[in-house]
Design a protein around this nucleic acid. Structure first.
Length: 582
RNA sequence: GCUUACGUGGCUCAGUGGUAGAGCACUCCCUUGGUAAGGGAGAGGUCGUGGGUUCAAUUCCCACCGUAAGCUCCA
């Protein structure tokens, strides 16, 4: 039996699905768009009168398997352009006709035929449907614009998982389930971290436990800032529209901003901190000796995101970034980027993300500023990346119109990638705000601005990280670090409270569970809340001056003296500072 | 914004054209219990909102709001 690569299998499977759909709904004006191979499977875009339901997916799946058993040969057919257009036109496949018209003159046009089904396709395919494995599963339907253009009609898309064998499919489905269990929205509710209310779409309410973690994250960034020479500033929330005209946000970003009219002036809620920092830089006269000047800002931002774009903490309408703007002279960029890359790795390594990808995005076609400046900036970024010694990919033409950028992506415990951090060079804002500093010769010079964020938005990071750790926070971040359980409230409560007070006064987040419940019950509650430690105190512990400690996820407990436990807490608590900076 | 689906007590969910149920959580009582649910009782919902159809709607239809998946968007 010939071996086919997985893409070939997925590709033919997509045709198989189309064939099944055509057979099942012959009178539904079925026509097909594109049906490409994707990670873990394939999809096909379909236009038809019938609205596909989940039950339909099962029917299609069943028929697909039947067609595999029919052992239909798959033939490759070369057509002339006119012939192909006429053929698909006759079949009412106007979408395919559009695709053929888009094929460059002179390119060979091929179709693949399996029994009663013919599809325009570059191939390759398997030779017979019997060579396809049964290890696929139609996952869900979704809408998708024809050719990805929102002005076009919307097609029905079926997503399918497809693998070479049953085990791979099973692993993938397990992965999906695991990911579902870790969904930050689910964990957020279960662990009482945050939730949403309909009165404020896309705006999380962080409960005390969530707020504790949130604030610890901010403090963590502050500790890093302290070491890397940043100064934190606090800036207004609502500013006159004039400012947004100056910054260019009014022209480019108005649709995403919240406005209010008061005293016959138009104000906007800030969607970004940058303009405020530009004003701050402008407010005093700075010298080249003051550069680089680094303003950090945890200001709350509001952006109106389209309703359909919202999702959990990953896309919200109110959020805060670990935002900073660096004012620098163009020759200082390289050194600063090296510095920034170190900061990134210090930060991400601390959260134990297994992989970090770095992308350099260069000038786009539509850009502001002259080529000489772009050359200088891109070279500085490239050379800084070389110096910091990390692999990076180049995304040609993917930069912002105002400057090149570096994006940093991390993968989580399940191997999913997220873009968190970003470093963006900006030649535009200094122009617009007419920023100047005095150079060594005593002349005015235009600084360059670097926008940068490591975690990105705190909200998004919170969500991604929560899924990464499946809700089990490390000691330094945990909203509750330990819960003390007295075996008997009559005899052990007072001692438990004493210990608790001592640890609380050292700043630990610890409490005594003195509810009138059994130990089994409390153990279950504490484990479900993923509290790092449960401390049990009974006769034995009181007598021996020890504590019975059980770590989250452990099956058993161990006995530690109070001194040992103090040392353990201190050590774990020290992890709030990254190893590299300790 | 678009397509589809969903919206029932704090949470997870069942159910029905004749105005509702479970488990957990909550309150009280009993139980003072050595590491993942001790026992009992009780309170709590005009079934997202507004219209429509109907003798009657939480259930059917429409609109709106919200949520989810995907598309588009993310200067």
């Amino acid at each position: 039996m010939p071996k086919f690569d997985i893409d070939t299998i997925r590709h033919t499977s997509a045709h198989l699905m189309a064939q099944a759909i055509e057979r099942l709904w012959p009178d539904s004006h079925v026509q097909f768009g594109v049906g490409p191979v994707i990670d873990n499977g394939f999809y096909y875009d379909i236009d038809m009168d019938h609205r596909l339901t989940d039950e339909d997916l099962k029917k299609i799946e069943k028929l697909m398997k039947a067609i595999i058993k029919e052992k239909i040969p798959v033939e490759r057919i070369v057509m002339q352009r006119d012939e192909a257009i006429r053929f698909f036109q006759d079949k009412g496949q106007t979408l395919k006709v559009e695709l053929i018209e888009a094929i460059p003159e002179g390119d060979e046009i091929t179709c693949y035929k399996q029994g009663d089904f013919i599809d325009l396709c570059r191939g390759p395919h398997v030779e017979n449907t019997s060579q396809l494995p049964m290890s696929f599963k139609l996952l869900h339907t979704a809408g998708a614009y024809w050719r990805g253009d929102s002005n076009n009609q919307m097609l029905q898309r079926i997503y399918a998982a497809s693998f070479a064998d049953r085990n791979e499919l099973k692993d993938y489905l397990t992965f999906l389930q695991e990911a579902k269990k870790r969904d930050h929205r689910k964990l957020g509710k279960e662990l009482e971290l945050f939730h949403f209310e309909t009165v404020a779409p896309g705006s999380p309410f962080f409960m005390p436990k969530g707020a504790t973690v949130y604030n610890e994250l901010v403090d963590f960034m502050r500790r890093i800032y302290h070491r890397f020479g940043y100064d934190e500033v606090i800036t207004p929330q609502i500013l006159d529209s004039d400012l947004w005209h100056t910054s260019g946000h009014y022209a480019h970003y108005k649709e995403n901003m919240y406005f209010s009219n008061i005293d016959e002036r138009e104000y906007a809620v800030k969607p970004m901190n940058c303009p405020c920092h530009m004003l701050m830089f402008k407010h005093y006269k700075y010298s080249y000796r003051d550069l680089p000047l680094r303003y950090a800002d945890f200001g709350r931002l509001h952006r109106y995101e389209k309703a359909g774009a919202l999702g959990g903490l990953t896309r919200v309408r109110t959020f805060c970034q670990d935002d900073a703007h660096i004012f620098i002279d163009i020759d200082g960029i390289e050194k600063e980027i090296v510095n920034l890359m170190e900061m990134f790795f210090v930060c991400y390594n601390h959260f134990k993300f297994p992989n970090i990808k770095v992308n350099l995005s260069t000038r786009p076609e539509k850009k502001a500023g002259d080529d000489a400046t772009w050359d200088k900036a891109e070279n500085a970024l490239r050379s800084a990346l070389e110096k910091s010694g990390h692999d990076y990919a180049i995304k040609e033409g993917d930069g912002a119109f105002y400057g090149p950028k570096i994006d940093v992506e991390i993968s989580d415990a399940l191997g999913r990638y997220y873009q968190l951090g970003t470093i963006q060079l900006d030649f535009q804002l200094p122009e617009r705000f007419d920023l100047k500093y005095t150079n060594a010769e005593g002349n005015d010079e235009r600084p360059v601005v670097i926008h940068r964020a490591l975690l990105g938005s705190l909200e998004r990071f919170f969500g991604v990280y929560l899924e990464h750790i499946a809700g089990a926070f490390p000691f330094w971040l945990a909203p509750e670090q330990a819960v003390i359980v007295p075996v008997n409230n009559e005899q052990h409560l007072e001692y438990a409270n004493d210990l608790c007070q001592k640890w609380m006064s050292k700043g630990f987040r610890i409490r005594v569970d003195d509810r009138n419940e059994t130990m089994g019950y409390k153990t279950r509650q504490i484990q479900k809340a993923k509290v790092p430690f449960m401390l049990v105190i009974g006769d034995r512990e009181m007598e021996e001056k020890t504590v019975s400690i059980r770590a989250y996820g452990e099956r058993s407990s161990e006995s530690l003296s109070i001194e040992e436990l103090n040392a353990k807490f201190d050590e774990l608590s020290a992890q709030k500072m990254p190893d590299a900076l300790r």
